[in-house]
Computed example of a mutant assay.
Amino acid sequence: MDHSHSHGHDYGHTHAHSHGPASPHPAQAASWSILRMTVVTRLGAALVVSACLWAVVWLAMR
Rank of each mutant, 00 (worst) to 15 (best):
M1Y: 11
M1V: 08
D2N: 09
H3K: 10
S4M: 08
H5Q: 14
H5S: 14
S6Y: 11
S6I: 14
S6R: 11
S6V: 14
H7L: 10
H7P: 00
G8E: 06
H9Q: 06
H9W: 02
H9N: 07
D10S: 11
D10V: 09
D10F: 06
D10Y: 04
Y11W: 04
G12T: 03
G12E: 05
T14E: 12
T14W: 04
H15W: 07
H15R: 09
H15T: 11
A16W: 01
A16V: 06
H17G: 00
H17N: 02
H17V: 00
H17I: 00
H17W: 03
S18Y: 05
S18W: 04
S18I: 01
H19C: 10
H19D: 00
G20C: 11
G20W: 14
A22W: 09
A22M: 06
A22P: 00
S23V: 13
P24A: 15
P24C: 12
H25M: 03
H25Y: 10
H25W: 07
H25K: 09
P26K: 08
P26S: 12
A27V: 12
Q28G: 01
A29T: 07
A29V: 10
A29D: 05
A29R: 05
A30Q: 13
A30W: 04
S31G: 01
S31N: 05
W32T: 09
S33C: 12
I34H: 05
I34E: 04
L35S: 13
L35K: 12
R36M: 08
R36D: 15
M37N: 00
M37P: 00
T38M: 01
V39C: 01
V39H: 05
V40G: 12
V40P: 02
T41M: 14
R42L: 15
L43M: 14
L43W: 09
G44E: 08
A45K: 12
A45I: 05
A45L: 14
V48D: 07
V49D: 07
V49M: 15
C52M: 15
L53D: 09
L53S: 09
W54V: 12
A55S: 14
V56A: 10
V56E: 04
V56H: 01
V57N: 02
V57H: 04
V57S: 07
L59R: 03
L59Y: 01
L59P: 00
A60V: 10
A60N: 11
A60S: 15
A60W: 13
M61T: 15
